[in-house]
């Protein structure tokens, strides 16, 4: 059985006269039905652009390259805008980070929901309207029928994000991509939205790509994790593998930054990673993390570091053998 989504060697390049800006470099992963892949990384590591590249929503001047990009075995690389539009919203859909600005202020919630359904299923208005009410109820909005007549500015951020989720699910896509869906929301609402997303993902049997910088979210909802750093995936594995036995020095350093109740003492400093992320211009040569890595040595440059596959689906991008990495990571395991 082929995976729901297969990504192999995905890169995003913004050509510029001063040198190409390459925020996403040779990213590969796959997502199965009913599985949640969390792509985790700090701001600017290329995780959002990866998501937009999957949807074909990159800015016009950006270049997307991939050895393979397949949804349900169908190649997404050579598609025309029209063919891609047929897939978007129906086979794969996306929830964005900014619920406050992601809905069109000029149309009612009902119109924006049902137009998506009508676009893909050519159904009558009444059918699409019933479908919209059903989806609003599904995402936990009460008095759904009366909400249809409301405009986005009349809803709170949490409600708007629920509407966005309803909109993404209205055609029952196979894949949902959620780009930091809770970042802009109140902490109390964050948990609700997250819970909702993962419940719906199970209920509809979808594959989900959840993009976040929050390791707490990863621990709660992910099946598998891909850790991104400076445009590359540096470590992949199941959530248990990555949290219990982090292999890449970046993942280890990242896990040391989270406070763990009972282990971090009051007043104790949390871990931090010294140095800064490299600028993603041109070819960086060697390991992207080497300028901040505590274990960096001569072998980390100049050749590109490849992904070491420990077992299928479990890999890390470092020259050091897995056993040594695992021993170093022992103190970082959450």
């Amino acid at each position: 059985m082929t995976a729901l989504l297969e990504v192999d060697g995905l890169s995003v390049t913004f050509p510029a006269t001063a040198g190409d800006f390459r925020p996403v470099r040779d990213v590969s992963f796959s997502v199965d039905r009913g599985e949640t892949l969390c792509i985790v990384g700090e701001s600017g590591c290329g995780k959002s652009l990866t998501a937009l590249a999957l949807m074909g929503l990159l800015p016009k001047w950006a270049r997307r390259d991939a050895r393979r990009l397949e949804l349900q075995g169908r190649d997404l690389v050579g598609l025309t805008e029209r063919q891609l539009a047929d897939i978007r919203g129906r086979r794969m859909s996306m929830v964005f980070q900014e619920p406050m600005t992601s809905l069109n202020p000029a149309y009612t919630v009902g119109e924006q929901l049902s137009e998506t359904y009508r676009r893909h299923y050519l159904s009558r208005r009444g059918v699409a309207r019933d479908r919209a009410i059903y989806l609003l109820e599904t995402v936990g909005i009460t008095a759904a029928a009366s909400r249809l007549r409301q405009y986005p500015h009349q809803l709170s951020g949490g409600l708007r994000q629920r509407v966005m989720i309803a909109m993404a699910l209205i055609c029952e896509p196979n894949l949902i991509i959620a780009d930091e869906p809770t970042t802009a929301l109140d902490v109390t609402i964050q948990a609700q939205i997250l819970h909702l997303l993962s419940a719906l993902q199970k209920r509809f049997g979808m594959g989900m790509v959840l993009i976040t910088h929050d390791l707490g979210i990863v621990a709660r909802v992910a099946t598998r994790v891909a850790v991104m750093y400076a445009g590359q995936i540096v470590e992949t594995g199941t959530v248990d593998e990555v949290f219990a036995n982090p292999l890449h020095p970046y993942t280890q350093a990242l896990l040391r930054c989270i406070p763990v109740p009972g282990r971090v003492k009051r007043g104790e400093h949390l871990g931090s990673i010294p140095g800064a992320v490299p600028t993603l211009m041109g070819d960086l040569g060697g390991c992207h993390f080497r300028n901040r890595c505590a274990y960096a040595h001569a072998a980390c440059a100049p050749d590109p570091i490849l992904m070491n596959e420990v077992t299928p689906g479990r890999g890390y991008r470092c020259v050091v053998p897995a056993a040594i990495c695992a021993a170093r990571g022992h103190g970082a395991a959450a």
Binding site: M55, R88, G89, S93, M94, T101, N104, E115, R119
Partner: peptide, 26 residues
């Protein structure tokens, strides 16, 4: 360049719908 135009495209709406229905009105 707004987020809701990106949403409209992400929903699979046709370019002309995005342009005349979602963009022009605003």
């Amino acid at each position: 360049a707004s987020d809701y135009i990106r949403t409209a495209r992400a929903k699979g709406l046709l370019p002309r719908t995005v342009l005349f229905k979602h963009a022009l009105r605003n």
